[in-house]
Amino acid sequence: MPPAPRSRRSYDQYCAAARALDVVGDRWTLLIVRELLVGPRRYTDLHADLPGVSTDVLASRLKDMEREGLATRRRLPPPAAAYVYELTDRGRELLPVLQALGTWGAPALQERRPTDAVRAHWFALPLLRSLAGLGAEGVVQVRLPEGEFHVRVGGEGESYGDGPAPESPDVRLTLDAETCVAVGRGVLTVGDGVRAGSIDLSGEGVLAKALRAS
């Protein structure tokens, strides 16, 4: 029986990296994953937080992600009655991939270009990675001039989300985007930022103490 025709281009290489790029190598796909790692998102929310993507391309990429088992689409119950996209377990496995890409690309963030869009939660991935080795767990709420996001560090459920944390955070950080980039790159610790006055930290408990001592 002849092989089934492919609906997308493939590298046709028996290589794990090539197979992965067959699925996520198209332009915008990994950035859509970045947005869905925040949690379920409506199409309009995705389009708003992916400046530069056309509606046709976004719709096409989402369909590809559904077909490849990276994302699903479901209807919210009333009164919302809206459709949202969310990652499958397979899609969420891309979290460390995006963190590694962010670490590799962080040196390119030396200066913000006038044309650069920015969203606060885009800083969550590198920050989550930089806080992973603290030996403490909990929820950190971060406030930047551009907005707020939160990260859950330690334990088995590391994650991040846009906006305030749904529960009372263990730690609150207030800093600017450039300082957040420095912490994410590992060139500045939260403790050093607190001592230098570039980071405001509030909270008690094991996680707050670990951050102050870093």
Rank of each mutant, 00 (worst) to 15 (best):
V171P: 02
T72M: 14
L134T: 08
Y160P: 00
A48Q: 11
D64A: 15
E137K: 04
D176S: 10
I199Q: 02
R112K: 14
D56H: 10
A208G: 04
P96M: 07
V33T: 07
A124L: 02
L201G: 08
G205L: 09
Y83S: 13
P3Q: 13
E86R: 11
K209L: 13
T103P: 00
E35R: 13
C180M: 11
T115L: 07
A20M: 15
S60G: 15
H47Q: 14
P5N: 13
E178W: 10
D89R: 15
Q99A: 13
V24C: 13
A108T: 12
T44I: 07
P169I: 00
P78E: 09
A177C: 08
Q110D: 14
E35I: 00
D12W: 09
R61W: 07
L94H: 06
R112D: 07
A18C: 12
E167A: 13
A106Q: 12
G105E: 14
V190R: 00
G184Y: 00
I199M: 05
R42K: 11
S159K: 06
A59V: 01
S54W: 02
G91M: 04
T115I: 06
S130E: 03
A100F: 05
G135Q: 07
G138F: 03
R90C: 07
I199T: 05
Q141A: 15
R41N: 04
V33R: 00
P40R: 03
P40E: 05
L207V: 07
A182W: 06
H150Q: 04
L173V: 08
V53T: 12
H150C: 03
W104V: 13
F149C: 04
A120F: 03
W104K: 10
A132C: 09
D89I: 09
L98Y: 07
V24P: 03
G105R: 10
A100M: 08
R75I: 09
E137R: 07
R129I: 00
D89G: 15
V190T: 03
E167P: 02
R8H: 14
R212W: 02
L58M: 05
